[in-house]
Computed example of a mutant assay.
Amino acid sequence: MTEHQLPRWLMTLAYSGSVVVMAAYTLWLYAMGDYRELLIPLFVTLLLLTALLMHYSQGLTPAIPRAILLASTYAVVLAAMYYQPSTPLIWLGLPVAASFLLLPLWGALFLNILCTPLWWLLPGTSDISSTFALGYLALILLSALPPWEHARRGALLRATDPNDGDCNAYHIDTLKERLHNEYQRAAMLNKRLAVLVLHLPQLDMAEEQFGQRAQLALLGTLCSEVNSRCRDHDLLGRAGNATFWLVLPDTSESGALLVRERLQRALSRCVLVETGHLDTRISVCLPCRTESFERYVKRLEARAQALVEA
């Protein structure tokens, strides 16, 4: 649901704290005798408890409990301002802040703009001044500034950093650029060129069952083993989520097969705590003499897709 992933411990704290706060709010309404307003907080408490249990589940995407948390925030604030028109308008900032924390930037902006007319239909907000309306819009824009700056810095970093953000391998754009250079060099100097296509079938499973830390451990182990057993001028790049290309300049088909066997033996000996032995599928792909670079890249992508479906 969000491009910037919040730490798991922070989300655990958010779910747990929301359950405690909502349960306390429900008990307070019960003690005050406001039985008419009790139903929605009680239902939201059960929803938040469900979201907390779903957060601990390894097989579910984190987008589902986050959506429940966000919807619960909107429902509680909406119900409080509907049943109690004297509720301070400052509470309108709570769903705004939650949306920018739990949603991508453009999704949060769209949701807040869409919900703006809804707040003005509530009994307590029918006579608010234009100053408050301007302040509410300013709050939305100010809340959008941190994620916008984060996205801008991330884009700048991706444009200037040749390495992938999760492992010690080239980014896909840098990888294709370096591969193009090696392809032209091999064609001009009549040199040999080979590329190994590597696929990690355990990667998606590791992220779904054990979280991002297990995924990063798999990526780090693969890159460390490959880089330690290759030459300095060999190029390892991440071509997809679980796919890598190892560019081997001045390497014949027989040499590429030897490298593949050496890497498969080395990677099969790697054992991780969560996933066990490292399972890697490796294929060799050599360019043809009359083949264009674009055609060669498509063959590499097709070879990677074949390894995924194998």
Rank of each mutant, 00 (worst) to 15 (best):
E3T: 14
E3M: 12
P7C: 03
R8Y: 13
L10H: 08
M11E: 09
Y15W: 09
S16Q: 01
G17F: 13
S18Q: 06
V20E: 09
A31L: 08
L42K: 06
F43M: 09
L46D: 02
L46N: 06
L52H: 03
H55I: 03
H55Q: 14
Y56C: 12
R66G: 04
I68W: 01
T73P: 06
A75W: 07
V77F: 03
Q84E: 14
G93F: 05
S99G: 10
L101P: 02
L105G: 07
W106L: 08
W106R: 13
L109H: 01
L111M: 12
C115N: 04
P123H: 03
S126I: 03
D127H: 05
T131R: 06
I140Q: 00
L141C: 15
L142C: 13
P146D: 10
P146E: 01
R152Q: 08
P162K: 01
L179V: 14
L179P: 15
N181Q: 09
K191C: 12
D204C: 03
A206V: 11
Q209K: 06
S224I: 00
H233V: 15
D234I: 13
W245H: 07
L248W: 10
L248P: 15
T251V: 14
G255N: 07
E261Y: 02
L263I: 15
L263D: 10
V271K: 07
E274P: 07
C285Y: 02
P287M: 02
T290D: 15
Y296P: 02
L300G: 10
